[in-house]
Amino acid sequence: MNLELIPLLIVVLLMISAGGVDVETTEFVIEGDHEITEHRGALIVGDATVIIPGDETITGPVYVIGGEFHIEGAVEGDVTQLSGSLLIEDGGSIGGELQHFGGSEEFADGAIVSERSSVEFAPAEPDPIAAYTPVILTTLMLALVGAWFARTRRTLLDTVGSAARDHPVISLTVGALLAVTFLAVFVFMAFTLVLLPVSILGLLVGMVTIFYGIIAVGYLVGQQWETERVGLATALGIVAVMAFLQVIGVVPILGDLIAGGLLLIGLGAVVLTYFGLQEFEPVTLPG
């Protein structure tokens, strides 16, 4: 599953939860090509192509968070589009309201939409400054927190940094296992709706842990300057790490692997050292 879908999925589940839709009838189409001929309950379109054939009707509501949703038949309820593509063919219809928040939409001449509302959170083609604003803001925030942390809690960063530097393979392994498992667990929890708050909290804690890892790696990089102004060095190190993640991400596949690996090493090092409270020592083996 595309990881970028997860925040949108959480939003949709919150909407479903607030709307009182029965979760047991909710269907989430993650990937592949599907023709939905009959479905009663909410339908979430993820990274998939979903078609409602010409002579078929589904009740809805439908939430589009990725992929493509083709309506050749009819959707009786509301359709909410957060991302992805929505195509309503000639003769296709939406009986409820179409709420458009993002993504592309295309209506054929004979398409019928009872009611339409649109709230655009981002322009269709953002300019480069707008595109990089979140990254720059995140970097600044991490640099500030990192600088403060390095001045007041240097031992913690030392401990995490040492684990990342001295045991990168172990940190990577633990980080990868935790990321894969807990991501799946939290998404799974979200589907129960009852555990949705736990799921959101878990994802937030995960995000904070990853940020902590970036700060620790930034601290390590900052140490290379051998200056007494440890706060400044850490902040610059964090900026360097974030810039590296952006630049390396441009290289297809390999760049993503390297960037992901670095983040996971940081995550693993944070967990292995109990957030820097205890140095990590692997078991001692003879020989």
Partner: peptide
């Protein structure tokens, strides 16, 4: 390979925990 890393560097109980945890979660899925 991940299991090899865990086995080499941690107490064996951690590997058992991972195995049972993964199985329980898989069956749940």
């Amino acid at each position: 390979l991940a299991a090899g890393v865990l086995y080499t560097n941690f107490n064996r109980n951690w590997v058992f925990f991972w195995v049972f945890g993964l199985f329980a979660f898989t069956h749940l899925l």
